[in-house]
Design a protein around this nucleic acid. Sequence first.
DNA 1: TGAATAATTGACTGTTTTACTGGGTTATGT
DNA 2: ACATAACCCAGTAAAACAGTCAATTATTCA
Lengths: 147, 147
Amino acid sequence: MKMTTKGRYAVTAMLDLALQYGNAPTPLADIAERQNLSLSYLEQLFAQLRRAGLVSSTRGPGGGYTLGREPGSIAVSEVIKAVNEQLPKTGENCEPCYLSQVWDELSNEIERFLDSVSLADVLESTEVKTIADRQQRIFIERHEVMV
Amino acid sequence: MKMTTKGRYAVTAMLDLALQYGNAPTPLADIAERQNLSLSYLEQLFAQLRRAGLVSSTRGPGGGYTLGREPGSIAVSEVIKAVNEQLPKTGENCEPCYLSQVWDELSNEIERFLDSVSLADVLESTEVKTIADRQQRIFIERHEVMV
DNA sequence: TGAATAATTGACTGTTTTACTGGGTTATGT
DNA sequence: ACATAACCCAGTAAAACAGTCAATTATTCA
């Protein structure tokens, strides 16, 4: 399980989508603005998330992205793996380096932990919820003026 | 807590040192050979590990590196943080992206886990132990011939 | 029908990090 | 003296990161 800033971007964006779950599709432009991320970069990430079946998309006006499944059944680990996905590495001919297997065990341990945490779980956590609510309020306020 | 291959290298090398704990200092050349890593790259990593006080060094013939503390009191997280350490980033002026704090909570959770796992803990784990023993045996065999 | 919206695709760019290589200096034990 | 090994520095190729830009396609709405 690789933990990188790329994974953080993806999880953050997916949490944003999770907050909109049940509503109309969310365009990437909204997520980009709310989470302060680059739209084009999000496009790249969502191409991978879509290939992994974690989101589904609707084109045209009123379109955007929605979660492929309910927030409670999408594990954080899935999101991270989706964006870190890379071509299968050329067969490791590393005979004597057994100790690196030890690292793998640790890594698997972390992966199992993130397997058990869903997007919904994360949003349930106390501090998080108030944070998310506040963000939602600010975003709506800012856009009500414009509409 | 960033999980990268760099961290894996460092932890693997430190586990190698942990197996030699109590014996004479281990030269990096030995670790490089056993773990199939580049000597010069290890030198870079060990400069950081030394600055963090995780290893101490002895120069000259018969010299090398030893763990700064006993394997049971060095956390895996310390090793990872030591090699990932970087100049403090220019103040984040990211006001509205509250959801990234959610990621931080997850990340902290993983860090707490790795705080609780020492090098000794890792080596205690069943499969790992036999793997390490085997590696040790092979290495000794190969070098007894040369001496 | 036409304009606007928004995903989708692909190519391209600059920066940083990774993972090394090589050369040199310094300390030290034999 | 000499070999050993840490230490230090400079450079570097490849990858990953974090985007930009432009073009295309599908859809909705007026």
